[in-house]
Design a protein around this nucleic acid. Structure first.
Lengths: 345, 345
DNA sequence: GCTGCCGACTAATGCGCTTTAGCCTGCGGG
DNA sequence: CCCGCAGGCTAAAGCGCATTAGTCGGCAGC
């Protein structure tokens, strides 16, 4: 016994009820001049009463844009284990998008080529007005593509050098350098001299920055052997790297992992090897999460306010969509939360 | 030096190039009769060459639907810690949506009222053709709402009783009952008699089903004291519940946690109390993830193929959108992966 | 030889909204 | 007294596509 579904009211319905033309309704509802205040108010009330909402399709068609921004996440399926980062980021993003009545079109892709294809398709289909670009990488093809397509975008995490070269691309810059400095500072203060960095995907820009900064900091402080090894962020490769490191001739006394998942995996390897944490090995996780709090010992971790990060990114994008010039802003530097996994050596 | 962005080709461009009318182009591209095969082929080639894609806005406006499905995730921000479930689900969903050229409009909401508001808005704005509904709950207001709005939907996880009462709502039913039975069976076989269930949000339908099944199974096997306590899925409440249970007069010998995060938190509490796992306490996690593999001891967990689950849900929805009648299908029963955290007692 | 019909197209309409161009009415200035 | 002008509104066009209603030529049937 299917009820006939409710019909969606259109501007024509409002016009009829308010006894004016459709154009008057449009003017009234969009705050354009051309109608008296009395009429405007009346139209508003009728619209409200009818529960009218503009059809995004019609709006888009008449040149107003799709009222939607896109976000594609290109990570191989196996590495999206317990990535709390993205859901938190998105939750922040949503908060401000909702305020601006913008929808979020979300897609997951296998790799960056699929991601670019998605951008092209969205553009050709006129689905989005702007984009949030995550995981910037060295030699990133996306800014040039977006420039070609004329799509405004916010790059989350910062490109390497050539910002500003592109039309409508803002950048939300995460201070990886400062963060790495604080980690190395912490470990050095505890007496560590052999620090190793189990990094993430080598093609990501922030991975490179973190690696570079580790070396710089280590040199500055006269620490030898500060090296990085790259992984795919998975627990498997995190564990694997840890095994190799601990079996080496001169195992590190401290390991910095580029995400929480690998840090936990590394901790498990240490336990399995009988290496005491933090007695013989200190562990730091880049990005805090419930995992870091729940392990035994709990993990010292780099904490950042990811939802806030997302909000900031969304703000940059809405500004861009409103016609503001592209900017480049730095997010707040993450804080190191000291827990049980780091100690004197 | 901003290049002028590329212009998007329209059907008019194709028509001009191919030397036919716009209608002919439409017929040709949509596989409608009314054009010769030769013309059809020529038009196809021109379209291809121009990189033409239909404007979703225009399509939507002419009654074809928005080529988009919606998904809103209503969970309080604090509980979306390391929820790997959703990203995995979505990755599966995307896979099949992409094949059908459907976009996914994603939103996060604070609670179910905000979720319903989002549905209403999407409907009024004609943004979506259908919805994926997650976290069904007892007395769920959403099916009635969607029915009223005439939006096809797939409920992921199954409603309680009244399926079939609604117009275009399919159900992908997760076999919580069978899963719980396999867990209880496993623990019983190991000799456990005092099993406790640290459940999730009490308002969710699957929480209730799991609780009910635990009682049924326990009774059937003559086990006393099989109780459930509810939480908000957070590590904090998982830990808290574990503390209470372990301090009770007759602590359980086995605890089943409704997600991985709480299981890990519970494990940490046991460690902190000096309760050996699995010696004195066995632990089972509902939903496997990297966490379960990485802890020490590793956790026996209920494994399900979440991306496949997502794919299945998306298939149900595309069928619905294509006009098929609503159905109710059961997802494959999850498998219990036995690890170190469960043993004889 | 005319009618009827079918295949291959084209013209025209509508979807819901924005926007531009007009159309009145009343008013002040010349 | 007429003109110009501004305010308040309506009519109409256009966005890109699908669809319905023609149009036109050719071919079979009577």
């Amino acid at each position: 016994m299917r009820r006939t579904p409710a019909r969606r009211p259109t501007m024509k319905d409002i016009a009829r009820r308010a006894g004016v033309s459709e154009s008057a309704v449009s003017f009234a509802l969009n705050g354009r001049p051309g109608v008296s205040d009395a009429t405007r108010e009346r139209v508003r009330q009728v619209a409200e009463q009818l529960g009218w909402q503009p059809s995004t399709a019609a709006r888009a068609l008449s040149g107003e844009g799709a009222a939607t921004v896109g976000l594609v996440l290109a990570r191989p399926a196996r590495t999206l284990g317990a990535e709390s980062f993205f859901l938190q980021l998105v939750s922040g993003v949503q908060e401000v998008l909702a305020d601006h009545r913008l929808g979020l079109l979300f897609q997951m892709a296998e790799d960056i080529d699929a991601e670019c294809a998605a951008y092209r398709r969205w553009w050709a289909e006129r689905r989005v007005d702007g984009l949030l670009v995550v995981d910037p990488r060295a030699d990133d093809p996306r800014p040039a593509l977006l420039d070609e397509l004329g799509l405004p975008a916010v790059v989350i995490g910062a490109l390497d050098g050539d910002d500003g070269a592109y039309g409508a691309i803002s950048t939300l810059w995460a201070d990886d350098t400062g963060a790495m400095a604080s980690i190395v500072g912490h470990l050095h203060a505890l007496g560590h001299r052999r620090i190793t960095h189990v990094a993430g995907l080598p093609e990501l820009a922030h991975t490179r920055r973190r690696m570079a900064c580790l070396r710089t900091e280590a040199e500055r402080r006269g620490l030898p052997d500060a090296t990085s090894v790259t992984t795919d962020y998975s627990d498997a490769q995190g564990a694997e790297a840890t095994r190799r490191l601990l079996s080496g001739p001169q195992p590190p006394t401290a390991i910095v992992y580029d995400n929480d998942v690998m840090a936990v995996a590394g901790l498990a390897v240490a336990a399995e090897r009988g290496v005491s944490v933090p007695g013989e090995l200190s562990i730091v996780a880049w990005d805090d999460s419930v995992l870091c709090r729940s392990t035994h010992p709990s993990l010292t971790a780099l904490t950042r306010d990811t939802p806030a990060f997302g909000r900031q990114a969304a703000h940059l994008l809405t500004a861009l969509l409103a016609g503001a010039p592209p900017t480049r802003v730095q997010a707040s530097t993450p804080r190191l939360t000291t827990r049980e996994s780091t100690s004197w050596t």
